[in-house]
Design a protein around this nucleic acid. Sequence first.
DNA 1: CAGCTTTGCGATACACCGTACGGTCAGGTA
DNA 2: TACCTGACCGTACGGTGTATCGCAAAGCTG
Lengths: 238, 238
Amino acid sequence: MSSQLQTPWNRSQEPRSSGLSRETIVAAAIEIADEDGIEAVSIRRIATRLEARPMSLYSHIEHKGELVDLMIDEVMGEAVLPGEVPEDWREALRQIAHRTRDAARAHPWMIATAFRRPLLGPKALRHVDQSLAAVAPLDLPFERKRAVLLSVDMYTLGYVRWEMLSPHGAGSPCAGRDEMPSHEQIDAYLREQVAGGEYPHLAAIAASDLTLGVKPESFAVGLEWLLAGIAAEVESNS
Amino acid sequence: MSSQLQTPWNRSQEPRSSGLSRETIVAAAIEIADEDGIEAVSIRRIATRLEARPMSLYSHIEHKGELVDLMIDEVMGEAVLPGEVPEDWREALRQIAHRTRDAARAHPWMIATAFRRPLLGPKALRHVDQSLAAVAPLDLPFERKRAVLLSVDMYTLGYVRWEMLSPHGAGSPCAGRDEMPSHEQIDAYLREQVAGGEYPHLAAIAASDLTLGVKPESFAVGLEWLLAGIAAEVESNS
DNA sequence: CAGCTTTGCGATACACCGTACGGTCAGGTA
DNA sequence: TACCTGACCGTACGGTGTATCGCAAAGCTG
């Protein structure tokens, strides 16, 4: 009935020769995505960068969707702590979150892309396993551990997305005809909308800074709060 | 190129009222996205559905990116509470989160799409304003209020994305050549990977249900936990 | 070594995409 | 009446992913 799930990771590989390989293709694709956004990643453009012909890539990948899976898994590898996971669960989650944030900031396209496909590659599984290791000391049912990890990951990705609207933003998730509007444009637009009086609570904020003054340290502040909330829950449970 | 003689009497009565408008275009695009995913939304396909010609749509929209913005803002409208926001902040956030979840489940494509563009439409702003209204009673600095709302929204979207991998999943975020793998396929694949011994903490879970038994009520459970964590933080702050 | 199979590479072609350009024509205004 | 505005739309261009086929070299088997 249901056939075996085919993924790029359980399919046999083995480069026969030449500079063209799954790794070089994925690396080139990530370079292009980092430079010009995920929409700019096309088979032809990757081939040009590798001085190969478009159809040659299909000797190493099944189709473009698989390439995207490989790209995401590669950047998920950057979210994995290289060494041992600290024993203190808060410190462990803190380190994992910061690494995840760094990966997302370095590759802004991955945030939206990761929401479009299940993350089942070896490095994504490593990230999950490492996160589970971090909360292993906690005597919580699995259901709550999952909620903890989901919250931390989502807070992290959501924060990076938020950051991208700010002047400190590391990159743009937009592409195509309409580019990402600038911080100034968004700020001016929001002030105009708020001036209409339709959004009283937004207006109360607007006085200071409507795009909400994302400072580099705000991420850590919010993360500490989230961890504190988790800690409170853990203690009340025990 | 010969055609029937055109006279004022046999010419179509109302060529001007062809039902083409920004609203009908957006509605048709959302229908298509709900049916076949966001990638299936093309200018030509929308035109076919509306019995119009592709280029006619450009009288009502600037370009496709704008159409996507309009689509997202429309479904954000479904996340807005229709009536008054409850005074109790926890009940208010609970209701907002559940509505947001319903909207995301009804339009699974919106989760990834919302991460690709800033959400600045009137209904998105209404959602933010309503959320700010919910936490208005809390005596927290704006920085923390933002973290609260970010956490709740991200938890909600992250959970729905998670749900989509389960048998209860309402829809698929995938499209194109490779479709979303089934629950059974993912479960079997994960068991196989875990059996390799590379992911010990995942393995500890695997005994029960690797795709992690997403039950409809799990969302509410995790949300309550998150709200409890926030409440703990609020009290410790006051 | 001969012969066969496998496998990476690549040219061509096809269907589909967003949309620039320019034309047609109904309705409103002067 | 003349003019203008703006919705509609036919055509075309440059892009996309990739199916299909042919080719050449490597590896295996006899």
